[in-house]
Design a protein around this nucleic acid. Sequence first.
DNA 1: GTCTATATGCTGATAGAC
DNA 2: GTCTATCAGCATATAGAC
Lengths: 196, 196
Amino acid sequence: MTEQMSTSTRDRLTTATAELMRAQGYSATSVKQITVAARAPMGSLYHHFPEGKPQLAAAALRTSGAAYIQLLPLLMDPYDDLRDAVPAAFDAAAEQIEQTGWINMCPVGTVAGEVADSEPGLREVAAEVIAFWIDEGTDYLTSRGLATVDARELILAILSALEGAFVLSRTLRSAEPLHAAGRAMAARVEAMVAVR
Amino acid sequence: MTEQMSTSTRDRLTTATAELMRAQGYSATSVKQITVAARAPMGSLYHHFPEGKPQLAAAALRTSGAAYIQLLPLLMDPYDDLRDAVPAAFDAAAEQIEQTGWINMCPVGTVAGEVADSEPGLREVAAEVIAFWIDEGTDYLTSRGLATVDARELILAILSALEGAFVLSRTLRSAEPLHAAGRAMAARVEAMVAVR
DNA sequence: GTCTATATGCTGATAGAC
DNA sequence: GTCTATCAGCATATAGAC
């Protein structure tokens, strides 16, 4: 009934890793930092993740990546018209990141950029996560009335613009890039529904 | 007359740093790697950059950032119509990155994502570079016939989409995100010129 | 499964001869 | 301005008691 600490050591490790990588990326995050943040001893880390830091980072990317894409329907469902839903999602992301002190919502983009040419195993995991985003996003946009080819085309542009605008907004400490990116994506939707 | 080695030690250090950060980011790039790649001894690095690695990285970001934005007019000038010029620039970037083995063209985006919440000094330098991109891009798009507000709006969306699509394309090893992002930006241009 | 103590190597940075 | 030798500290990872 109390349930005061239901999280397992393993879960605390993956969560702490995701949180730290969200702010610092992969290379700058040390296993020492992770064990302190997760209140777990070194030995537990290598018990649960025998291959060490890369394996732990992979688990963290998979978990947070799966959670991240669920925001898409959550933010867009309230709007009947896709032309309103898409920019609204960008505006919500802008508000969120501004209120949380410009920390990224998800570590996948940052880590992907870091490891794309240096850590082959992690790059593959990031690619799996992004491919999952594309598939889920395509399904969702199809359910919102787009043809499958249009849905895939649009989700690719949305994910690109969102990830890039996050980098610009975090760096500039300004929501302007996220809002501009959202309006651009609204124009893309408009062009798609206009051709019908 | 021979001039066989015109590059100074200082230039070789900044160039090597930019190249390494392009592929690995900031944290994963060690000063040892840099001195080997630049064929410069440790002492020279700390002679030219007394504040060490962060100062060297800052110089590398400024230099490569200034060179990077010059690609914009270079790629877009050949097209009379902005509606053709914008997607053509994305397609050219896609071809370039595919041919060079999916290595980033510029270290600024990757490094910015890494250091936005952890290295305040470097984050500020990255912000300066991106602000310069926005100003230069606004000027260029104004010279191509857009109103100033539209020009700024568009360059913010283009830079966001380009940086994000680079991350996706490098990670997925596919040019698809860059092409989709380019077509989305073409729709944004179309919407702007249509209102005239 | 948990935890401490420790090994080994690499990190950024410095001292000081040339 | 160049270069070598070296520092102290932190990195990842492991051994082995509990």
